[in-house]
Design a protein around this nucleic acid. Structure first.
Lengths: 331, 331
DNA sequence: CTGTTAGCGCATTCAA
DNA sequence: TTGAATGCGCTAACAG
């Protein structure tokens, strides 16, 4: 049997309730009594029982992190780093992470069972019909997704996309394609919006035929690129909604002997781990994934602690990282 | 206030304990009583309180998954897929995953606080001095690591390495280098052992100068490759302890204009996601990472349920996947 | 087959 | 400043 608060109390010569107060730093008490109790706890290696405490306080000390199955495998996912950042931030505050994959559109079990005090939801595959009822149950923060009235943290995709396209425009490109896995994903849709804005700002028309989706299959860049390759005239630049599409596009181009960036420039989005290592190194829009996780975790802690109930949407700055795939000389 | 078992019992016209038995399927009871109770629970939307149950049964329904900080980021880690497999397997059995990063050599907090019924420890950075005491506290399974007397599941690295080297030998290679991030990692050391065995089996000497470590830094392939490139005569083949080293080696060779596989053949280990997509496609030893996670999770469930207390070491078969980097024509 | 009773370990009233 | 009493919701041992 593990050491309980009664053992600590007995050893310190006080009652369990006094021990409880000392251990939790609540109420006033004589410093020496407190010290005696803390010492006893230390000597005994006392660890409060999570369940007993949870039962009494209705607090779990856990935050659920939910990711949709579509974003798996974690190791290739945009959200891997976000997960780590959340874990790291919560760990420092004594909270734990319950990691859970959403395989269908039913609410995560960890929330249903009351195992967590709050929820971070990664990605856009979880709609309002699921989120809104959940939000009434417990604090909740969306990461990389926005639903009105719900706390969220996401990157400034539009500005990032605009910066990318403007960079290509400044290279003199006039025919810039946009490719994405799917435009049904709001995150990618925002990148498309930025692309359109940049074109419009420069008086260029938006041309449907230069926009291609690949679908959610693996290697989804192939169908997208096929559409572009069927054009009478290849665009001189491709802006991809994420790095994986960009790298796939480069692969297809190189397979056909089309040199990148000489014939076709390529710019990606996310600035993931691979970007510096592909050939040529990929120019990409940096997304502060770690920071997204950190901000989400901190917000969740605030909510769990009952502060500031008004929903807040945090948008983090992105930044174009110039390498060589856009035609610049850099690293 | 949430609906409790008393509400269910009242509605079904029975006592709470009867309701408890019905809900948990314990003991015999009249089928219609059970049905009535289950219906009442459903109608009320009853959710058992985890803490109350945990307090009464001393079971948490959670398994901790611990990964050493060295293996981060998850998204590039060998263990990302293992994590998912564990989550998936446990989810099916109603268990939850507490994800935790080990940042120093102190025992994971989730275990100390009794938040989990068992522990899966990923990787080799956690030594006996930490594992052995933990194991006395709770069920524990090591993944990709072995400590005598502790349950573990790991890939058959030696056989895999032997198969890889024998394949290269069958191509006629006589000077085969071995590179690894570090030989201090037991997992990589086993791959070196397989390499040596294969050489010995074929009457070839083990040559120190053909074995190079890179260290644990990012891009650790550079120092390793520098050692090899300083040799009077370049080896005709390189066997790398993991894909990341292999891909880095190919990059260095190609930077110097040395064609792969014509001048130097390369074989990797892990058969990770990138292997088919690099140029040339990487021949690599497949490691059943998903299965490792699944087996570990099932074993953990057995242990948690009190079956079979004798420690067991499970070694899963690996398999050489031949592509083009070894000089074969395949995909 | 079912109900009564007791207790899991803790935090929190309320008295003293 | 401290202690005694109470209850969080559930399961298990024991009666009936």
């Amino acid at each position: 049997m593990a050491v309980t608060i009664r053992d600590v109390a007995k050893r310190a010569g006080v009652s369990p309730s006094t021990a409880s107060r000392a251990l939790n730093g609540k109420g006033r008490m004589r410093p020496e009594t407190r010290a005696r109790i803390l010492r006893a706890a230390r000597e005994l290696g006392y660890r409060p029982n999570v369940h007993a405490r949870g039962l009494a306080t209705r607090v779990t000390g856990c935050i659920g992190v939910v990711i949709a199955a579509r974003h798996l495998p974690v190791e290739r996912s945009f959200y891997g780093l976000v997960l780590e950042a959340i874990e790291s931030t919560l760990d420092q505050e004594g909270y734990h992470v319950v990691f859970s994959v959403l395989r269908d559109q039913s609410p995560p079990k960890c929330a249903q069972e009351g195992r967590v005090d709050g929820l971070a939801i990664l990605g856009t595959d979880i709609g309002p019909e699921l989120v809104l009822p959940l939000r009434k149950q417990l604090p909740l923060v969306l990461v990389d997704h926005a639903i009105p009235g719900v706390d969220s943290v996401l990157p400034d995709s539009e500005s990032g996309a605009r910066a990318a396209v403007e960079h290509l425009l400044s290279h003199g490109h006039k025919e810039i394609a946009f490719i994405a896995e799917t435009l049904a994903d709001p995150s990618f849709a925002r990148r498309l919006a930025g692309y359109r804005e940049a074109l419009a700002d420069h008086g260029l028309p938006y041309r449907e035929e230069l926009v291609a989706e690949g679908g959610r299959r693996p290697q989804s860049w192939r169908p997208a690129m096929e559409k572009l390759l069927r054009l009478r005239k290849l665009p001189t630049a491709i802006f991809a909604a994420n790095d994986s599409m960009a790298i796939g596009a480069m692969r297809v181009l190189q397979e056909r002997g089309i040199p990148v960036p000489e014939e076709v420039a390529v710019v990606g989005f996310d600035d993931g781990d691979l970007a510096p290592y592909v050939t040529p190194p990929l120019t990409s829009v940096f997304v502060p994934r770690w920071e997204m996780g950190e901000v989400a975790a901190r917000r969740l802690l605030e909510l769990v602690r009952g502060e500031e109930p008004r929903a807040r949407q945090v948008m983090l700055a992105t930044e174009l990282v110039v390498r060589r795939s856009c035609g610049c000389g850099g690293g």
